[in-house]
Design a binder for these strands. Sequence first.
RNA 1: GCUCCCAUCGUCUAGCGGUUAGGACGCCGCCCUCUCAAGGCGGAAACAGGGGUUCAAAUCCCCUUGGGAGCGCCA
Length: 473
Amino acid sequence: MTMIRTRFAPSPTGYLHIGGARTALYSWLHTRRHGGRFVLRIEDTDRERSTPEAVNAILEGMAWLGLDYDEGPFYQTERFERYRTHLQTLLDTGQAYYCYCTRERLERVRNEQLARKEKPRYDGRCRDLDGPPSDEVSSEPVVRFRTPLEGHVVVDDAIRSKVQFLNAELDDLIIARGDGSPTYNFTVVVDDLEMGITDVIRGDDHLNNTPRQIHLYEALGAQPPRFAHVPMILGEDGKRLSKRHGSVSVLQYREEGYLPEALLNYLVRLGWSHGDQEVFDVEELIQLFDINEVNHSASTFNPSKLLWLNQQHIMRSEAPHVARHLAPLLAERDVDPGAGPNLETIVRMQQERAKTLVEMADNSLFFYRRPHAYEEKAARKNFKEGTAEILEHCQHRLSGLPEWSAEAIHGVVTEAAETFEVGMGKVAQPIRVAVSGGAVSPPIDQTLELLGRDETVARVEAAVEWLRSQPTG
RNA sequence: GCUCCCAUCGUCUAGCGGUUAGGACGCCGCCCUCUCAAGGCGGAAACAGGGGUUCAAAUCCCCUUGGGAGCGCCA
């Protein structure tokens, strides 16, 4: 078997969204698993809607996800000469012809067909003409491909197996516009052919285009590649996911504190599975993913499961890795990750208590700066009568501790609870509010150890003062 | 309308002729507990409907219904 070559071919009319990312992922995994080469091609022949910003957004999205490509990016707009050459071949061999029909006539034919409840299609008026017809002639003729009238085509799909189309259902598609520029169905075939693509993996919205493309391959004297049409991802309302439809940019997940491998894991499981396994790392996926095992049916995007998977990946990842992704989020919050307790230690303490890195960042801010105020609810619940005394007691014990360790700190807390004859919660919680400003933090002994003695004592003292300054009653 | 695709808990899925239809997310209890989590235990929750084939059908075939996609001088 020759080396596998696949491609991801987005059109730069918007950012990289969930559906595109999954298609790219499936292609990438398939390629990496078989030691092939992955090509990135930007399909920008629609000059009206393609933008450089979109190109950048797509490249950045791919980079963040770690879907690296071996060749490209290639741009279709730079390949017009290639299309022209093949177009001429088809014209020369009579497999394509000029069509002089005006848009108006086409529109009329179409409406008539629709009115008769027929499938709208070109009626073939110019198919067998030697020159322009006598009336309704367009000054800028298009080029149409001469589709066989009889017989059928079979798409042998890796996911859906054989799908048959009757040629009679197809019509003569336009392969070059009036201005001479090539159209989609033609450019993909030429590019996939010239780039030596062996496996075309794409959304199943393209399945209906495939028989036409197979005809084009054959007309150009080439063997079609293997096809794999992956099912669509639907929004929560069951409609196809699209940009105007709940599908956000993959980069938005970065903003929201998702790990790229969590998103990849979520995406791969949407349409593929390996027994009961839910959590995969990328290396495992490369070993296990098989394009032939992808499901047939469309699936619905489920944000809560993605959230859970993100948490799983945060928990299971190495602390330095999480720290790298967390650091920028801290910076966004005006915190210098280098100017405080060790970031990796913070990560280890927070790993199992954050579903997103955003949450982790927010819940870790107190390590870097003192609380400006106490959260009202937390203060109301934990700062009660007698709390000041408990805190003051702890403050003294903590400052007198011979050794600043979690174990020693824990001893202070239990001792205080015994001394005041209260539960641990009556001691730990007020300290927690004192140092963090809120009611949530990692275990109090570890938290204080990491925060450091001076900072801890200062914050507890501040809380005592604050409590004493409050009007009683 | 025509063509193509699809159909197991709310969602993602396992199942590939014989299972008490399994797992996961979410949800609801209970346990653990200094908070939040994590974790453990338990629970509710599905084969769209109808015909065949077969000793036996969630699994194979057909129809119906439902959903999706395509039918551009968009990609």
